[in-house]
């Protein structure tokens, strides 16, 4: 009676079958899957361009079954700008880590956001440089040990962690900003909701959208995968609170529903 069965889980069409090179317990894989599911659900695979950046996700162009451009370190928002100015209807998303986006690429992300460029950023914040072997990132927590903050990050030596969503939330340009955590199943479900919202914002042509995903790096945190997930929920969220900072799509939907029901509220 298979015909009566509803399919609730399958390998996403927007992912290739290439085996991912991420470490065991790393949440990059989760993020990839969520993005791929959203691309499938929105039916945009054939008009999506993935921007791979520099960091652990450098091979993103191998994993997402879309057109792709590999970008130099930190510059994906500028590359996205170039593509979107030529092809406004193409769906472009940049998959950036914390070193790529919040350190070397800070100028590009801030200006793309300020311009309200109509593309989506999936921002993986795991508070460490993974690919280059565990150095301190701009988002490394105070006290966190890394290979370049061996006694733990201190503010006098290395300053404070950067809160990207809050920083971008000071700008008028962004249309959607949210931070979610890739930790427990409820958080993962919320993360997918935010990712979908971000892509829908782009499809609607509303402008810049970014989802920050608090992610694990068991390898360079020196933790088991489960300890790492606990660390996200218990430590990272203290510095990086989970929130939807901006949702212009909701504002627009609100206006539309108000228009469709003129009598309401009178």
């Amino acid at each position: 009676m298979t015909t009566d069965m509803k399919q609730v889980y399958a390998y996403p069409d927007a992912l290739t079958e290439v085996e991912m090179r991420y470490c065991p317990g790393c949440t990059h894989g989760t993020a990839h899957r969520l993005v791929a599911e959203v691309i499938d659900e929105l039916g945009i695979k054939d008009r999506t361009v993935t921007l791979a950046t520099v960091g652990c996700s450098v091979y993103a162009y191998e994993y997402f079954d879309t057109d792709a451009v590999q970008c130099s370190h930190g510059r994906a928002p500028a590359v996205a700008t170039g593509i979107k100015r030529v092809q406004p209807d193409t769906i472009v998303f940049a998959y950036q880590g914390d070193g790529d986006l919040a350190s070397i690429g800070m100028a590009e992300i801030v200006h793309a956001a300020a311009r309200g460029e109509n593309f989506t950023v999936i921002f993986l914040n795991n508070a460490v440089y993974g690919m280059t072997q565990g150095q301190m990132a701009p988002t490394t927590l105070l006290g966190q040990k890394t290979t370049t903050s061996p006694r733990g990050r201190t503010a006098p030596e290395a300053g404070f962690p950067i809160r990207v969503c809050e920083l971008l939330d000071t700008l008028d340009g962004p249309a959607f900003l949210a931070r979610e955590a890739l930790s427990t199943p409820p958080h993962v479900r919320n993360a997918k909701r935010a990712i979908k919202r971000a892509f829908e914002t782009q499809v609607a042509g509303l402008g810049f959208s970014l989802v920050e995903l608090l992610s694990t790096c068991p390898t360079w945190w020196g933790m088991t995968p489960l300890e790492a997930i606990k660390h996200v929920d218990e430590q990272m969220t203290k510095c990086y609170p989970i929130a939807v900072f901006r949702d212009r799509l909701a504002a627009q939907e609100g206006e539309q529903s108000a228009e469709s029901a003129p009598g309401e509220g009178e």
Binding site: R75, V79, T81, G82, R85, A107
Partner: peptide, 25 residues
């Protein structure tokens, strides 16, 4: 389309994106 970039670093990467999208840029 004319766009003033935030830096020459960004400008050449915008050029990279536009060229990847097939444009004379």
């Amino acid at each position: 389309v004319f766009l003033q970039a935030e830096s020459e670093v960004a400008a050449i990467n915008m050029v990279y994106g536009a060229s990847a999208a097939g444009a004379r840029v």
